[in-house]
Design a protein around this nucleic acid. Structure first.
Lengths: 205, 205
DNA sequence: ATTATTTTTGAACGTTGTTCATTTTTTGAA
DNA sequence: TTCAAAAAATGAACAACGTTCAAAAATAAT
């Protein structure tokens, strides 16, 4: 291997190390309680070094948001082995909620925080590919449901958006503490009870 | 009137002035681009004065979040003049979305930002009364729908939560720029098209 | 008029994201 | 091995933030 190649690999390795440290701290103490100095300390490098590898904090948040989508992809893997699109749509909701609950800070980064979108605006990347792809898998499944005779009278794209909204809405309210506020009869299982309603709902459409 | 009474009134007036200035700046340039110094400048007082009237920034954000709920109440006023609960539920969704789109920063404060909930935790207030009350009006309407024979097989509370989640989800995705990312066929009307699906959906339940 | 109380002030503190001249390390030809 | 050039890492310094508090100014009470 050439020296240049090795250097390039080392650069990538350090970039990954920074992201790994950042993710660890994000999960441990929350995203807005984590500073660049914290991240630098965590991996035994100086603040300056972090800025050699990332333009600014938004760049770190964006890269981590992409990693989040990759992890969501892991949860979604196997979903298309379910051939019945209706069953797949139900399972997709369950898995989405599971991901959100098991990765709350990452979910927040992916779907709530402004930083990753601000990064996109200030860069020449095409667009929000991660979001496009994820929404695409919902939309495809909805279209297959319609081909099988479900969702009569509905339009695939806006309906897919509403299904996404419904599941995202409950995860978002939970993560942003709005469910704790509203005193539910069974607060400990409101997400699961909500999911059961979701299953009934799409079954009726 | 006594001097004490007048002073108490003046204190309230200045508190309102601070909130008014804060709200203006929030709407003009966004919540996280607004600093305490900005607010103080806006109303021609010093930073120190702001801290005499508010414990910290969270306290301002919480009070403004309460004002937001009062404004949402204005949008909701008249909703219970619609006697048919099904029609009322549909209209409730429309009005909720209208409020969210016309008051994006306030909506963000009410349902997305952590600050108002953090303030609640660090104070001895009972709970999130604003949220409880708003959710209550959805739940009441859903229960009335069920009394009229709709939503068979559903549970009122989790179903209400899902309906709230659905409408909140779309507003939240829009406000947090996640709809711009996903390239919809008709991006300019995705919220309205989504609302039409919402109407169809609850009509089928 | 004088004193006591209340209200307002803004300099100062610790922390944040960010920059960049300087130092340290690594490289490859002599 | 030696050493100048290139690359990588550093951390002091900056501006701006939320927050505090001793001092000053304004008002009320005697």
């Amino acid at each position: 291997m050439s020296t240049a190649e090795r250097k390039a690999r080392e650069k990538e390795a350090l970039k990954s190390l920074i992201l790994k440290g950042a993710k660890k701290l994000f999960i441990e103490k929350g995203i807005d309680q984590t500073t660049i100095r914290n991240i630098a300390d965590e991996i035994d490098y100086s603040v300056g070094t972090v800025y050699v590898y990332f333009k600014d904090k938004n760049a770190i948040l964006h890269d981590l948001h992409s990693i989040g989508f990759h992890e969501l992809g892991g949860y979604f893997k196997g979903l298309f082995a379910i051939l019945d699109p209706m069953e797949r749509l139900k399972e997709m909701g369950r898995v989405y909620i599971k991901f959100a609950m098991e990765n709350q800070e990452m979910y927040d980064l992916m779907f709530n925080l402004k930083a990753p979108m601000e990064f996109l605006e200030s860069s020449e990347e095409g667009g929000w590919n991660e979001g496009v792809e994820t929404f695409g898998s919902v939309k495809t499944t909805v279209e297959q449901c319609m081909e099988k005779g479900h969702f009569k009278g509905h339009l695939a794209e806006p309906l897919s958006f509403m299904i996404w909204s419904m599941v995202h809405g409950m995860c978002s309210l939970e993560i942003r503490q709005r469910t704790k506020g509203v005193k539910f009869s069974k607060p400990e299982s409101i997400l699961f009870d909500g999911y059961k309603e979701y299953v009934k709902m799409i079954g009726k459409l």
